[in-house]
């Protein structure tokens, strides 16, 4: 439980890139995105619907994704999201940013661990 809370705090600022990178592999509708993220996280992280919507609104607002309505099914129409060229660009930038941060944090945390061990 506690571990997941730590997850939430660290993930908070990265929801937008996470959604973008899922959309990189294909269009999705809202609940499909939640499912996909849940699966990719190894069944530990379930994005909340309110967070999903506010993130999608943000991405749509900055033209990183675009929405379109899918065909009518027996559950009604579904709204799909597609990543735009600007979105791909932003996603790439996020990858690089994250790689740099990860390397930095790894280095810092490893050093701390090493000193504790001594």
């Amino acid at each position: 439980m506690n571990g997941q809370q730590i997850n939430s705090d660290l993930i908070r600022g990265l929801i937008d890139p996470i959604l973008l990178s899922v959309l990189l592999d294909g269009d999705h509708y809202g609940y499909g995105l939640i499912k996909e993220i849940y699966t990719r996280s190894g069944d530990v992280f379930e994005l909340k619907e309110p967070t999903l919507y506010s993130s999608l609104r943000r991405l749509e607002g900055s033209k990183l994704v675009e929405a379109y309505w899918g065909e009518e099914t027996n559950g009604g129409r579904r709204k799909y999201y597609r990543i735009t060229e600007a979105g791909r660009e932003a996603c790439r930038a996020s990858f690089e940013e994250w790689a740099a941060v990860r390397e930095l944090i790894d280095r810092l945390l490893n050093r701390a661990k090493g000193e504790n061990a001594v």
Binding site: Y29, Y31, G32, E49, Y53, G76, R77, K79
Partner: peptide
């Protein structure tokens, strides 16, 4: 109205799931 339809369709998908 657009958002309402989206919310409903996502809830519906979750229910089905």
């Amino acid at each position: 109205a657009d958002r309402k339809e989206e919310v409903l369709s996502n809830m519906d998908a979750r229910l089905e799931d």
